[in-house]
Each structure stands twice: as structure tokens, then as C-alpha cells.
Nucleic acid binder design. Structure first.
Lengths: 278, 278
DNA sequence: GGAGCGCTGTATCGTATGTTACGTATTTTG
DNA sequence: CAAAATACGTAACATACGATACAGCGCTCC
């Protein structure tokens, strides 16, 4: 060993700022002062802010070990992205005061907050409205591990409105159902990585038929996003061998609730009728 | 007033995404999914990530009211800078006093914390150990709305170990499976109110045959609790017409993770083998 | 079923941006 | 104090990036 652990560019700078000439040191200090925003701007702006010339900025990033300025910027962006994605780390991780030991639970709660943070009320309302308006049918389908979510949602929706179909079983089974689908219909798809080819193909064909697609996926977006009218990107990372679908589950429940509320007038009566039939 | 307060680009997008053509909507969704990092990259990268062409990205930012792409990027950077300076104010979403927007989400998060508060690590570990030891078979079954949870758990467990059976379909189908069950087996049941008679009867018979029962239920406890070896009581109350199974879902995921970890030595090899078979 | 409109991608263009060469200033060393 | 080495900025350069013109296509509305 003997090598220092350098995990961020800020540390890298702190490590080498001692052996820098005056101009580059000014660049370093300027960057640290409003880290890392200045580094994301152009060389010209950076140099102006630091009160040095452009080449000095370039020599500065070269000294840090980067081949060129864009490479340096990419590094900064990656660092930022990592920070933004894990809110737990950002707060310097106070491991939940009075509480839960399980890191699994903590991660799951974070995932949910983060998922909803990227999900506007407006978008949820739009989707709920689309699901509630009874023009065509509603189809639901999921991948290997997410199919239960489709099932769960279908089970609830089918109670408050007719024409809700969960596509299950053999691929050949539901592929043939395409023929029943048209532009008045909605297809709800659950697909997290590894994204399933069969689902992608299915989504594409449905899209070609004019079906509106609502996609539940992870933050890396299934390729189906290309065809989707609405995309819900849930966080899935947890300290486990598996990805977590819990955030998507909660979004699904939220939607179920919203749709039910919208259908209240008709839906309530429908539910009562159903009760009577049991 | 009458004019909406738009304080972030994310809100701006949420506000206008409804009136965007398909291509630009894909751009919007891609940006929201990993907000705001993609927007800081070049038009080419952005367009590639969204699966559209460069002009579509430019039309997208134009529709948001920006004169050109650099101006759009500057806005994103300013927003980021403001966020980084005051980590407390993390308003990406409609501000909604007191934190997250949806009361539904708040209730769900509370439910989870509460559920885990009443659930000792010890108990979870015991259940995981019982599920991991391969003496007999593992059966899973659920009620009308909770069957998808059983399915979800079965789908995962079946990968790390053999002899995992999800009991589905007609009642008559799985009732007959009782004959295969013995005291070396485990039966995982999901049952929240209204508790289903058929499930209760099934649990009772299984119990008589010496099957160990793990019960996922709500805080009022299904009658099956009488026969269960382990009871997991999840909170289900949310501001909706429906009960929420989200807390139980998270417990299920936690258990899946724990079992997988325990089986690591064997399980990992098994997973690899399975990958090979696909 | 046909005409019109709007959306989208391809190809081209201009330019802002990063990069490099070179000359001058400043510091360092014998 | 002189001479060399290093650092820095000015100016010219090349590339890659954003912007635009245009044509093809699908969709909607008569």
C-alpha cells in the first residue's frame, strides 16, 4: 500500500494543491470554493471566475491526471450523480435515531422517498385519470418477478371497473391477445432489469396498434420507455442479492387509491353490488 | 394569482408534459428519471439516452421556454447549486408543506416503521432460518388481494432453493395438496381482512398435519394466527378505500434477502447454474 | 378516403469551445 | 548578478457541439 485512498476530486485537489504553481492554485481554490459547480461550466467561465487564463485551467486539470477537460467534467458529474442518488449517504448517515436496525428497511424507505420525489402529483393524477376513464380496456402484465405486482393491481382495479385484464401464463397466450387491443386501450407493464425481451417485443407491437402504455420500471428505464406514454421510474437498490420492487408497489397502491377515488360515484355502487353477489 | 408557481424545471416539465408530442415526452421522462444529470450532458448524449434525435431534444428545451440549450443547462446548474447549498430544502416536487407530497406515501412509510418496530430482528432471523433449512417443502398461498405477495415471494425463493410451491388457482386444486404436506414442511400464508374462510380452513387442516405455518396478516390478526408458528403483523391503514399491503411486502422482501444470504454458499451456485440454463 | 397539418429524423451549417504553439514575464540557481 | 528554467497569457487552430433547413411520415379532420 502506501497509496492514499482518493475517492473524490476534491480530495485529489487537496492532496496536490501544495505542489501547484500560483495560477493553478487559484484555479483549485476557486473550484473548491463553490464545489463542484464551477467545474461544470466552460473553461472560459472557469478561468474568468478564477482570474486566470484558459490554458491555466487546462494545465490544472491535466495536473490532476485528466486527459482533457471533458473527461474532468464527466468525473465531476459522476460524483454528483452518486451523491444525488443515495440520500442516505448525503446526510452523513445518522443511522436512524431511535430505531430500526435493518439497513434493508432504511434503504427501502429511502427508495420510496426518492421515487416519489421524482414523481409529480400531476403525473400520478394524469395516469389515474387515464385509467379511470372507461373508454377501452385495461391490460396489465409484468416480468418474471414483477408479474405479481401486475396481478395485485389488476385484482384491485377489476373490482372498481369492468374490462380489466391481467395477462398471464405462457407468452403465446398473451401475445395473441394483441388482436383485441386498440387505441382506446391502456396497457400497464412492469419491467425492471434485466428487462425481458418478450415484454419489449410485446410492448412494441401493442404500441404499434396504438395502445397507450403505462410503464413501471427502475431508474435505468426499460427499453419499453421508448413506447410508453407514461413512465414511472422506481428506485430498486437495496442491500440484498435482489432488487426491491417495494417502491413500485407503493406507487401502484397509490394509483389504485387514486383511480378508486375518481370512480367514486360509480365505483362505490359497483363495489356494493359486488358485495351483494358474494 | 391564478398563475402556478413554477420554481424548478422539474415542475415546469410536470406541468407541460401533458401537452407534449411523443418524442419530446420521452425526452422529458428520461430527464425526470435521472434528474437532472442527463440534462447536464451534451445534446447528443441526452438524445441517445432518450432514444430520440438531437433536434427533438432541442425542441423539447425550446418548449420549456429556453432560448437555447446552454441556457437550459445553466438553469439546471443554478438549481443544483441552490440545492447543494441548502441540503435541507430538497424541493424537487411540489413543495407540499412538511415534506413529501402524498399523504398516502406518508401513511405507508409510517406503517412500515411501525410494522418493523413490532418485529424483532430475532423473529425475522428465526423465520429466515426456518425457510432456509432444507428439510421439507415450502408452500405459499395468499388471499384475494394478497396472493400476489405469495407469488412474489415464491418466485424468489424458488430460485435459491428447490421444493418451493405456490398454491394457486381453484380452491379445490390446492386443498388436495394437503396430502403432500407434513411436519417437515412450511406453509407461508398471507391473509388480511376480510379474512377468507377458505384460507382459515386450509390453515387449520395443514396445522393438524403438523405443518409449520408462517402467517403474514394485519394488525388485527387473522384467525389463522391461532395455528401459526410465526405471525407477522403489518400495518395496513392508509387514506384510501383499500388497505395497504406495502408493509407486508417489505417484510417479505426482507425475508427473501435474509434467506438468500443464509443459503449463500449453495444458493449462489444454484443461481449461477440457473443463469446457465436460460 | 383524401387533403392538410404537425411531428420527427437526416443532413448540413456556423460557431463556441477546448486545445496547442509560441513569446514574454517571473522566478530560481550557480 | 547573470543565465536558465519554469510559469503564464495571447493568439491562432481544429474539433465537436448546438442549431437549422428540409423532407418523409403518420395522424387527424373533413
Amino acid at each position: 500500500m502506501g497509496e492514499k485512498m482518493i475517492s473524490s476530486i476534491a480530495e485529489l485537489i487537496a492532496d496536490r494543491i501544495g505542489s501547484m504553481p500560483a495560477g493553478e492554485r487559484r484555479a483549485a481554490q476557486t473550484l473548491i470554493a463553490s464545489y463542484p459547480m464551477i467545474g461544470l461550466k466552460t473553461v472560459a467561465e472557469f478561468s474568468a471566475a478564477a482570474g486566470v487564463s484558459s490554458p491555466t485551467i487546462l494545465r490544472f486539470v491535466a495536473r490532476l491526471g485528466f486527459q482533457n477537460y471533458p473527461e474532468f467534467q464527466s468525473s465531476l458529474q459522476d460524483e454528483l450523480a452518486a451523491q444525488l442518488q443515495s440520500p442516505a449517504i448525503r446526510t452523513l448517515n445518522p443511522p436512524s435515531p431511535g430505531g430500526t436496525a435493518s439497513p434493508m428497511l432504511e434503504a427501502t424507505l429511502d427508495n420510496m422517498r426518492e421515487t416519489f420525489r421524482h414523481l409529480s402529483d400531476r403525473q400520478l393524477a394524469d395516469i389515474a385519470a387515464r385509467l379511470a376513464e372507461r373508454r377501452g380496456k385495461t391490460f396489465l402484465i409484468g416480468g418474471r418477478f414483477t408479474d405479481p405486482l401486475a396481478r395485485y393491481m389488476a385484482a384491485h382495479l377489476a373490482i372498481v371497473q369492468p374490462d380489466v385484464v391481467h395477462l398471464a401464463g405462457q407468452e403465446s397466450m398473451w401475445r395473441d391477445r394483441l388482436i383485441d387491443m386498440g387505441k382506446r386501450d391502456v396497457l400497464v407493464i412492469f419491467d425492471i432489469r434485466r428487462y425481458q425481451d418478450s415484454l419489449v417485443r410485446f410492448a412494441e407491437k401493442a404500441h404499434q396498434r396504438g395502445v397507450q402504455i403505462v410503464l413501471f420500471t427502475d431508474q435505468w428505464l426499460s427499453p419499453i420507455a421508448r413506447f410508453a406514454r407514461h413512465v414511472i421510474a422506481g428506485r430498486t437498490a437495496v442491500p440484498s442479492a435482489w432488487d426491491s420492487s417495494a417502491a413500485l408497489f407503493v406507487v401502484a397502491e397509490t394509483l389504485i387509491g387514486a383511480v378508486t377515488r375518481q370512480l367514486d360515484a360509480n365505483g362505490a355502487r359497483r363495489i356494493r353490488e359486488m358485495e351483494g353477489l358474494r
